[in-house]
Design a protein around this nucleic acid. Structure first.
Length: 918
RNA sequence: GCCCGGGUGGCGGAAUUGGUAGACGCGCUGGUCUCAAACACCAGUGAUAGCAAUAUCGUAUCGGUUCGAUUCCGAUCCCGGGCACCA
């Protein structure tokens, strides 16, 4: 039988399904291993060839671990809530669930064709209420907890209430939205219900507040910071405005330090960790109060450079700063402030280099120099960071420098020998001058000394600031998890747990109501106990993806998110594979969410993803044809310079190795029906370029097409062969034949000329065993290093060697089939069965590597002198260094090359080289 | 501006971490098979010189350490990514 991949693949996919080969159960006798893919959002476009890259890699690793005796958890599911299905619903009136289900079914069909070893009995869909019940439950838990900064742990709000009743908030260690507010136990008790409610809200890990949010009018919803880039929404690219709205937030900032520290204990790429560190943006410094004139009180600033206080010649506050409303401003200043406030994020960002600002008329006293310095207002100081005010040190901060130069303000250099005539000296190094008690110190020491002095004077404290903001958690959308929240007396209340899940109600349209409420406002009779209105916004996309990996451990429980025992068995994800685009979104929120669940004792590990690999993106490789302008003639790439041409994208599916299929091209569109071609050597060669894989570039390659033409095994192998997993690379079909050829060679290795299965039971020769053991070692090492491309190369070399040796010995082919099974499971199963094996190859045992098999009787060693190659020599293997030395010294060539000089050193690399240093 | 990656044939990419650079695959050239083409198979393929054996050069550039450097160190240039009026 010829290698008939479609029949073989159909047969084994059926076999795996019927026999539940990939069903996983907890088994204390075996070590566990949890391999996870980032679950997909089932989009309407279906899978393209780039999507399975990570899935193939994780599948290979899962199958490998399984062969090594691990109990492997390798599940799959769908991140099924989201905007596209809802946008489609708005246009068509189709319920998002209908589209989502259809897309999921399509994804499943596509995934099944590739032969993954997922345990589909554990499938999780975030839009199912059996799952989002637990998302809602966790939200309630977040609401009912605060963050204890002394214990670095989430604690019940009830403890906080008890403490308030006893001592007010004195001595409370809690992450809090308004830490400056102080109250006594008596004051607490005197508060009415609403005031107490407000106070607790400032502490809860899930809380509601009026805040500036990223409002996207086109999408009709609020977005989180990670969903916005350069003032545009990531999805859709629509403009985003700042807007004051009452929203739910998660107090992720309370976990900033732990999230930072946790990075040191997990095995992620350095660049990804760096991205998260940047996003958290921890900076240490001090808050310092500058005394304002008259009785205006203090102006508090944050600085990381307390050492430069002596050079603070003016101050700058944000246009939103509260002090501006306390004083009568000049008309001119007033105008500037309102102009600056009304500028959009985009406008501000696009004109970063333009210096604008006004003198407020206020003065503050520099506590170190005792001088009165002017207070300016400028939009370059942001209200949302630090205290919204800075002390400006033009000599040592480039932004302050630009401002001072523009407005002619004083610049005092503070570091010995620095030149500030043309630019500021921003580096944190050198010796202090012009700085009173700090003179002579190095910058590092001066920072500490200055902060010490500030604290001593009682004008400020050491302070850590974060760039990270609390996460906006409300979306004014329909297709998401409903909040388990109802309103009574205008205050939010959590549903009792036994009322969960709160199901998503039906609505007539997926648009906001006339009153401007989110779509859920259209649901009729949707009230708690028939009278209390529910929260009308829904949760964002990251809510559902923050705990799905826990749910896979125990997907069907109606008692809890995950059973304690099962969680203790599977613990956390050992290997997580997914795209780098989730670096500051999903991967931040999931870590936060998981740490919280850990704190409240729901789970046993605080970091969810031990090792993480970012697979690179597969880009599209577009093809072009060149139409001679104004004609129906198309000219081949090499000849196009002789004509005036127009470059046109052509569907890559009618191009093979850059050669255009002329008939298919003519048939592809009516306007090409009469196309004429100017050929080169009888062929039409297309141009090409690497672009994003997208419908509009006609470069989308569907894995189904590759599978039907070459088979799933070829697709799997080729995706791995393309290059290192983590690298982005274009999908280039040009090499796929080579990989397919390899599989045919493998097939031929155990079939005779008549294509009958034929293996010999003879003993393998040392050479054959050497080939085998070389590949055992290589596959093992490469898989463990996630170097799948070199592993595939290894197989090719091995099969070439065995073909040359005409080796069809069972002793070699059986282990080889197991080795290759993780990569190409279908053909491996087929060979395994032909070899007379009854059980699936998935349950086989990984062959044992024996180093002794690599030893041969002799090698040809190059001998070199002073690193320069001089001659080659036959040398037996397994000699000691001394024996090698004797052999080399006895050689007549050696004496000739040594030229009477003494032997200085002797380098011997077994199997490689003998090097004589004279 | 700050912080991470990375520069190797015509192309995708290897190199046991300091030991014969260019594995493996694509492409290209030649050959076998075929009436012919496709498929398949075999051989060659970094550059320069040479019929050849071979020689010289060669891993972005310059310099250093070493018997020996793609690998380590210093400087420079270029590409990719993250953060960014964050004080």
């Amino acid at each position: 039988m010829e290698y008939n991949f479609s029949e073989i693949e159909k047969k084994w996919q059926q076999y795996w399904k019927v026999n539940k080969t990939y069903k996983t159960v907890e088994d204390a006798a075996k070590p566990k291993f949890y391999v996870l893919d980032m679950f997909p959002y089932p989009s309407g476009a279906g899978l393209h060839v780039g999507h399975p890259l990570g899935y193939i890699a994780s599948d290979i690793y899962s199958r490998y671990k399984r062969l090594r005796g691990f109990n492997v958890l390798h599940p799959m599911g769908y991140d099924a809530f989201g905007l596209p299905a809802e946008q489609y619903a708005i246009q068509t009136g189709q319920h998002p669930r209908v589209t989502t289900d259809a897309n999921i079914a399509r994804y499943r069909r596509q995934l099944d064709k590739i032969g993954f070893s997922f345990d589909w009995d554990r499938e999780v869909k975030t839009c199912e209420s059996e799952y989002y019940k637990w998302t809602q439950k966790t939200f309630i838990d977040l609401y009912n907890h605060y963050y204890n900064t002394a214990e670095q742990k989430a604690k019940p709000v009830t403890e906080l209430v008890a403490a308030f009743e006893k001592n007010g908030n004195a001595g409370i260690n809690a992450a809090c939205g308004n830490p400056e507010v102080k109250f006594t136990a008596a004051e607490w008790k005197a508060m009415d219900e609403k005031a107490q409610h407000q106070t607790l809200m400032e502490h809860r890990l899930a809380y509601q507040k009026d805040g500036m949010v990223n409002w996207c009018p086109q999408l009709g919803t609020v977005l989180a910071n990670d969903e916005v880039a350069n003032g545009l929404s990531i999805r859709g690219g629509y403009p985003v405005e700042r807007k004051l709205m009452r929203q739910w937030y998660l107090r992720i900032t309370a976990y900033a330090d732990r999230m930072l520290e946790g990075l040191d204990r997990i095995d992620w790429s350095e660049s990804l960790k760096e991205t998260q560190r940047n996003w958290i943006g921890r900076s240490t410094g001090a808050n310092v109060r500058f005394k304002l004139q008259d009785s205006l009180g203090d102006l508090e600033i944050f600085t990381t450079r307390a050492d430069t206080m002596f050079g603070a010649t003016f101050m700058v506050i944000a246009p939103e700063h509260p002090v501006l409303s306390q004083v009568q401003l000049d008309k001119e200043v007033e105008d500037y402030v309102s102009w600056a406030k009304n500028r959009s994020e985009r406008e501000r960002q696009s004109e970063v280099k333009n210096v604008t600002g006004k003198f407020t008329g206020l003065y503050a006293k520099n506590p170190f120099t005792e001088k009165q310095i002017p207070v300016w207002v400028s939009e370059y100081v942001l209200a949302g960071y630090g205290t919204g005010a800075i002390m400006a040190v033009p000599a040592h901060d480039s932004r302050d420098y630009a401002f001072a130069k523009h407005f002619g303000l004083e610049i005092i250099p503070l570091i010995k020998g620095c030149d500030v005539s043309n630019e500021s000296f921003d580096a944190k190094e050198g010796e202090m001058v012009n700085s009173g008690f700090l003179n002579g110190m190095q910058v590092k020491d001066a920072i500490k000394a200055a902060i010490g002095k500030v604290e001593e004077l009682g004008i400020g404290t050491a302070k850590v600031n974060f760039r990270l903001r609390d996460a906006a958690f409300s979306r004014q959308r329909y297709w998401g998890e409903p909040f388990p929240v109802y309103y009574k007396d205008d205050m939010p209340h959590m549903l009792p747990p036994d009322k969960l899940p709160l199901e998503l109600p039906s609505v007539d349209k997926y648009l906001p109501t006339e009153a401007g409420d989110p779509p859920l406002g259209r649901a009729t009779d949707w009230k708690y106990e028939g009278k209390y209105g529910y929260e009308l916004s829904t949760m964002p996309g990251f809510a559902g993806s923050s705990a799905y990996f826990l749910r896979y451990m125990d997907p069907h429980s109606d008692k809890c998110l995950v059973d304690k025992k099962k969680n203790e068995y599977w613990r956390n994800v050992d290997l997580y594979i997914g795209g780098t685009e989730h670096a500051t979104g999903h991967l931040m929120y999931a870590r936060f969410w998981n740490m919280f669940l850990f704190d409240i004792g729901e789970i046993c590990e605080s970091e969810p993803f031990q090792k993480l690999i970012n697979q690179g993106m597969i880009q599209g490789r577009s093809n072009f044809v060149y139409r001679v302008v104004g004609t129906d003639k198309f000219v081949s790439l090499g000849l196009k310079s002789q004509y005036e041409t127009q470059e046109i994208h052509v569907d890559v599916n009618i191009v093979s190795n850059d050669i255009l299929d002329l008939d298919k091209f003519k048939a592809s569109r009516p306007e090409y029906a009469n196309a004429e071609f100017i050929l080169k050597d009888g062929k039409y060669v297309c141009g090409w370029a690497v672009e994003k894989m997208s419908k509009s570039y006609y470069n989308v390659v569907n894995p189904d097409d590759v599978v039907s033409r070459y088979g799933a095994d070829t697709l799997r192998l080729y995706e791995m062969f393309l290059g290192p997993l983590e690298m982005s690379k274009p999908w280039d079909t040009n090499g796929i034949d080579g990989v397919h050829r390899f599989l045919r060679k493998l097939w031929r290795l155990c079939h005779d000329a008549q294509n009958n299965f034929s293996v010999s039971n003879d003993k393998a020769t040392p050479q054959e065993l050497k080939s085998l053991h070389k590949i055992i070692k290589k596959v093992q090492e490469d898989i463990e290093a996630f170097s799948f491309n070199t592993a595939v190369s290894g197989f090719m070399i091995c099969v070439n060697e065995l073909t040359e040796l005409k080796c069809n010995k069972r002793e070699v082919l059986e282990p080889l089939a197991i080795l290759i099974a993780p990569f190409v499971p279908h053909i491996a199963e087929e060979l395994w069965e032909s070899l007379g094996q009854k059980a699936s190859i998935c349950n086989a045992k990984f062959p044992e590597f024996n180093p002794a098999m690599l030893v041969e009787s002799s090698f040809e060693y190059p001998v070199s002198f002073n690193g320069k190659l001089r001659y080659k020599k036959e040398m037996p293997l397994g000699l000691s260094k001394e024996e090698v030395r004797q052999r080399v010294m006895q050689d007549e060539n050696t004496a000739k090359f040594l030229e009477g000089k003494p032997l200085k050193n002797f380098v011997y690399v077994p199997g490689k080289i003998v090097n004589i240093v004279c």
